[in-house]
Nucleic acid binder design. Structure first.
Lengths: 210, 210
DNA sequence: TGACAAACATACCAACCGGTCGGTATGTAT
DNA sequence: ATACATACCGACCGGTTGGTATGTTTGTCA
């Protein structure tokens, strides 16, 4: 049905609209971004927009799927998979997420998280697409977490912990948007790393006796 | 200038609009909520709206301040302050937040977090009001955290940990909006509690040797 | 080369948006 | 009784919105 953008060399109007959506909606939100804004940024006319997408909602959902594919490619080829110890891989993932926090706020925040917060009640298409982007990414962490749990002899609910990492990131983004700078997310990522270290015994909790 | 709503007995148009804003914007977002929608829900006319608020943005910001006052009252009179041990108070706060997760999603999610995510770039007034609501609430946790750190002889950055609790909640809300149910927030609150227990030695991290 | 569909452009529309405006009802101080 | 303030009403305005109707260009295959 939809042609894969990777099999075609030149950027079609569809691809440019997808990129424009991710850019503008991360900046201004979904409802505050008009179809005309999207077309102008993409350098495309309205006719092209409604040729490729049956509605504005459909573009929002398609962009969420596009976002999921793009980010999964980024994370798949990231260096945090290298360590032999699965716990090191999990901790390296957290470090990697910390390193991604750079530049202006709309550049490092999550399109899916931003969009779903606004549109979860308005469009099931959008909600499902965003949920898929977030939870499918979380799933990619489960194997390392489960392997670490086995190696370190710790009982851990791997899917739950994987989801929690995403919650910490999303929440950090919100606090950073409120604060106007990136220190809240960074701090929360540090807390998350410490939590994982505690969980697997990489860091010792203080003894109960003073 | 503005009359306090608590000194007047009957609900004015202003109060009804504030309540309507918190209700509708948590449900549908700020940009997707029209002034007419707000007036209809509040049972007032547009004239009344713009008599009390100079713009829609101004209402959004005023509602954020209202939200901050309302919630700070709720938390001030909550029972989690009772335990003698400050760490128990912190853990009781987390339990209390967990108990608040009930009913439909718009009923337990945060107005300030929802709004600031959408409007942080559009209105400094809104952003500041939301930031104040979130960070002032976080500040109310600092004393207990600091007292617990002293009693348990642990070095903890109390303001940072206080902010982190809010980040975990906000992030949990987003994941729950994506999932369509409350289990993601609940799970993340459980992880948060475990983290605090590790930090203060209430829970032992597993020994490094298998 | 020509047929034909997909990819895009142009022009346009009705509904809706935030905000304005002239006016009224009610109080209250002088 | 006069004067003035506050609270509120609802018709109205210009601009913007998502979406449509109708071309024109472009790539593909016979």
């Amino acid at each position: 049905m939809a042609q894969s953008s990777s099999t075609v060399r030149k950027p079609s109007a569809r691809d440019k609209l997808l990129d424009a959506a991710i850019l503008l909606i991360r900046q201004n939100g979904f409802a505050a971004t008009s179809v005309d804004d999207l077309c102008k940024t993409a350098g495309v006319t309205k006719g092209a927009f409604f040729h490729h997408f049956e509605s504005k909602d459909a573009l929002g959902a398609a962009a969420a799927r596009h976002w999921g594919e793009t980010t999964s490619g980024l994370f798949a080829s990231a260096p945090y998979h290298d360590p032999e110890d699965p716990l090191d891989r999990v901790l390296a993932y957290i470090d990697f997420r910390r390193e991604l926090i750079a530049g202006e706020i709309p550049e490092y925040t999550c399109y899916a998280g931003t969009l779903v917060q606004e549109a979860y009640g308005a469009s099931v298409d959008i909600r499902d697409a965003c949920a898929s982007a977030i939870f499918e990414h979380a799933k990619t962490l489960e194997a390392d977490i489960a392997a670490a749990a086995e190696r370190y002899g710790v009982e851990v609910d791997a899917p739950s912990l994987a989801r929690h990492t995403q919650a910490v990131l999303q929440g950090g983004f919100i606090l950073s948007k409120a604060a106007g700078n990136d220190s809240p997310v960074r701090e929360s990522i540090d807390h998350l790393k410490r939590y994982v270290e505690f969980l697997f015994g990489r860091r010792a909790s203080p003894s109960k006796e003073t």
